[in-house]
C-alpha cells in the first residue's frame, strides 16, 4: 500500500475499471452508473481516501486481494443503529 499520508486536497479515484465513470465536472452531468456488484462476480475495484490508524491514506480494494474482505457501507458517522 502506498505511504501517502496526504493532507487536505488529495483526491482518490473512486471506482476503477468496469462500468466506472470518471468524476463528472458538474453535478448535472452525473449519469446513473450501472450497478456492477453481484454475487459470484468480481467486486468492482475502487480507490478511496481513508482514515487508517489515525493517518490519512488512499486505499484500493485490490490492495486486499488474497484476503477475505468485509466491505461495510453505512449511512453516516455519528449514527448508531
Amino acid at each position: 500500500m502506498p505511504e501517502n499520508d496526504d493532507g487536505c486536497v488529495s483526491t482518490a479515484r473512486g471506482p476503477i475499471g468496469g462500468n466506472a465513470k470518471a468524476a463528472p465536472a458538474r453535478q448535472e452531468e452525473r449519469e446513473v452508473t450501472a450497478v456492477t456488484a453481484r454475487v459470484g462476480a468480481a467486486a468492482p475495484d475502487f480507490e478511496a481516501s481513508a482514515l487508517v490508524a489515525g493517518r490519512f491514506k488512499n486505499l484500493r480494494l485490490s490492495d486486499y486481494l488474497g484476503h477475505w474482505v468485509v466491505l461495510c457501507f453505512y449511512p453516516g458517522d455519528f449514527t448508531f443503529v
Binding site: 450497478v35 456488484a37 459470484g40 468492482p44 475502487f46 480494494l61 474482505v69 457501507f73 449511512p75
Partner: peptide, 30 residues
C-alpha cells in the same frame, strides 16, 4: 460513486445505505 456501483447509494438522501459485501481472496463477491 463507490456506493453507486455497489447499488447502495441513496441519491435522494446523499448517503450510502447499510450494505455489507463479503469478498473472497480472489476478489469475488460471495
Amino acid at each position: 460513486r463507490i456506493g453507486e456501483i455497489y447499488g447502495v447509494y441513496d441519491e435522494a438522501a446523499g448517503v450510502d445505505l447499510r450494505g455489507r459485501f463479503l469478498i473472497d481472496p480472489d476478489g469475488v463477491i460471495q
